[in-house]
Design a protein around this nucleic acid. Structure first.
Lengths: 138, 138
DNA sequence: TTGATTGCAAACAATTTGCAATACT
DNA sequence: AGTATTGCAAATTGTTTGCAATCAA
């Protein structure tokens, strides 16, 4: 199941960086820039390819927001595939939700609507607390 | 609030077509082709622009699937902004879910997690009944 | 007639691919 | 040495924009 053959410097540096900043999410360009800022330069193509791989392996989640470039964020390996994610459309914050309600929901949708929700692929969009407050003030 | 000034033939034909096929979803190219097949040709740009407008006005919903072109589908004006949608990642079918469970969920997420889900923008991805059966047989 | 709409062609932006140079084991 | 990986440049793809011609009011 392991898809790596060689352990390369750019890839491990990418993985480390994402893991050490697991509270943030990055576009390919963000990441490329950050990695280059560490000293050795890394090509954008490589970042694309390794992110794709990390997503496939499950340690990184990809978020697609309509017009913008995709965002990537480290997810703590196990667990994230089962719970849902909330993504704030305003500030981009990602919230992990792991509670019974979600499980019940999944169960309900399966039994009542015959549909098997893929929690790992599903993101609920909306506004986080902070951004909702912000809107009021405007 | 009405954003139309002139009523044009391409636009009304588009709207009609979408409404008359509200059980299906279309990419810009699908739609352009179908409209051209009706006789008078319509430019892709026009389709883009009018879809954008219909989405803004709320009569059409837009779905973004990662790599693929966006899909558009007529939604019966009122109501669709409040309920959730299930999108089958295999066959592309769109299912409208309007039941108490979802409302409760929204309520729960708001009170427990401080997050206001935007149902209109949120799509739950997974497999519909038909496609799940299909997978078993393979 | 005035202003909105159309649609072509060109511009853009995100991502992918071909391929020679390079790094890993 | 042999194979995977890198990274540039070029190609693709979905979408947007400039602008002159056309259409609705």
């Amino acid at each position: 199941m392991a898809s790596s053959r060689y352990e390369t410097e750019p890839r491990s540096r990418m993985a480390d960086y994402l893991k050490n900043n697991s509270d943030k999410h990055f576009t390919v360009d963000d990441l490329t820039e950050s990695l280059c800022a560490q000293g050795r330069r890394v090509g954008r193509t490589t970042v694309y390819r390794n992110l794709e791989r990390l997503v496939r392996e499950g340690s990184v989640q990809r978020f697609d927001t309509p017009g913008a470039p995709a965002c990537y964020q480290y997810v703590s390996g196990n667990g994230c595939a089962e719970h849902h994610h909330l993504h704030c459309t305003s500030c981009g914050t990602l919230i992990h939700v792991d509670c019974d309600y979600m499980d019940e929901l999944k169960e309900h949708i399966k039994s009542e609507h015959g549909f098997a929700v893929d929690a790992g692929r599903t993101v609920l969009y909306g506004l986080c607390e902070k951004c909702r407050d912000g809107e009021h003030r405007e």
